[in-house]
Write a protein that binds this DNA or RNA. Sequence first.
DNA 1: GAAGATTGTCATAATTATGTTACTTGCTAT
DNA 2: ATAGCAAGTAACATAATTATGACAATCTTC
Lengths: 231, 231
Amino acid sequence: MIETPSRILVVDDEPSITEFVSYALRKEGYDADIVDNGEEAFALASANNYDLFVLDIMLPGMDGYELCRRLRSKTTAPVLFLSARDTELDKVVGLEIGGDDYLAKPFGVRELIARVRALLRRGQGGEFPGASNSITASGITLDEDAHTAAGDHGEIDLTPREFELLASLMKSAGKVVSREDLLRDAWGWEYLTETKTVDTHIKRLRDKIHAAGYDPGLVETVRGYGYRFKA
Amino acid sequence: MIETPSRILVVDDEPSITEFVSYALRKEGYDADIVDNGEEAFALASANNYDLFVLDIMLPGMDGYELCRRLRSKTTAPVLFLSARDTELDKVVGLEIGGDDYLAKPFGVRELIARVRALLRRGQGGEFPGASNSITASGITLDEDAHTAAGDHGEIDLTPREFELLASLMKSAGKVVSREDLLRDAWGWEYLTETKTVDTHIKRLRDKIHAAGYDPGLVETVRGYGYRFKA
DNA sequence: GAAGATTGTCATAATTATGTTACTTGCTAT
DNA sequence: ATAGCAAGTAACATAATTATGACAATCTTC
C-alpha cells in the first residue's frame, strides 16, 4: 500500500517553534511547509491542498483565530492550535471557531505527533478501531491511546513523564537515543531541563519495570551516548 | 543514482578549526567552502546555494548568532553551531534562533560527520528508516545507530573510544591508517594525546575482539605506518 | 486547602574509561 | 649477531560518566 504523505502547513512567527514542529513532522514522514504570517498562509492554503494546519494563536497581523475562520471557507482540513496561553478561555474559543484540537506550549515531539495523527485519522473517513496505536518490543506493549504499558506479567503503572520516556525509547528500540533527543521527544523544544534529569527518570522507570516483574535491563545504558531499549 | 555533493559553508576565524572541519567534510565527499568572518559568510551565502552552514558562535565582528539570524532570511538550510562554551544557556540560545544542532569543542571527525549527515538527511524529505547506518568488514558489523559491534559469535562490548577507533579503522578497511589520522578521527583536532595512546587502545580493542571469539589479527599492524583492518 | 503524587535538581557513591609511563618483546638492517 | 627502533603489554592514577537517594517545588485530586 502506497501512501501519499499528508501535507501539513505550519504557521508561526517564531523560527524556533516552526523549526521544532517541522523537524518533528518530517521525521514522522509528513510533508511540512512553513510560513510565518497569516496572509501568506491563506494564500498557500488556497493554492494547495493541505491535510492539516498547525496554527499559533499569537501571530503578527492576522491572528490564528482569524486565519482559522478564513480557512474554514476554503477547506475542511482540521486545525491544531498552538498557544502559550494555557487558559481555559483560549481553549474554548479556539475550538468553537472550528479548530479541532489545541496544544499548549511547551509540548514535546511525541505529544505533538499524537495530536496530529489523531486529527488526520479523524479526517480520513472516521477512525479505524482496528488500527490501535501501539508499540511493542521485547515483550512489552505500549498502548498510546490508553496510555498503558503492559506485558505477560501485567501492567506497569507509569507517570506521564515515564510513559513518554519509555515511548521515546521503544519507538527507537534497538537504537541508542541520546539524552538530548529524549528531552526533545518527551519534554519539548525548550528543554530548560538538565540532561541529568533524564538519568533520574530512567532510574524510576527501571524501578517500576522491575517492580512489575520485568527485566529492568530492558533499558540499557550505552555509556557516553545515551540509552537504548533492547530490541 | 547520481548525487550532487552537498555544499557546505564553514565559518570560523581559527584556521586550525576550519582546516580540520573542511578536511573532514571533503574526505566525506562534501563540497566545503571556508570564510573567517560573518560579513563575507553572508555575502557568500547570498550568492550561492549552500545546503548547510557550520558556524562558530565566537566570531570577530558579527557573531554566530547574529549571522544565523541573518541567514534565516535568505535560506532554510540547517545550521550546525560550534562552540567552546559548553553551557546549557548557550545551547538553548542557539537552538532558539533556529539553528538546528550544536557541537561542543573538542569534537572528533566522526562526531562531526554524524551531525552533518543527520542535518542534511533531515532537510531532504525525512529519514529513511530502512537505511541502517552500518559498516561491515571481515565478518564484523558495526551498527552506528545501535552503537554495537557484532559478528557470528555475538556482540563485542566496546567503550566509546574503542568503538570510535574501530569505526575509523573499519571505514578504511584494507587501507593503512596512521596513528595521527586515527587521533584526528576518533579523538579530535586538538589531540594533546600521545600517539602512543593509540597503541594502548589497539591493544584493548584486540583483547576485546579476542575475548568475544573473533580473530584479534583483524586489526593488523603495519610497522612504521599505522594499523589496518583486514579487508 | 490538604494529602498525595509527580517532577526537577543536587550531592554523593559506585562504576567504568582513559592517558601515561615504564618496561618487555620483537623486528630489521647492518 | 646485535644495536636500535617500533610495537606490545601491564600497571596505575586520574578523569569522566552513571546510579542512587534525598529534598524541595509543583501539580492533582478530592
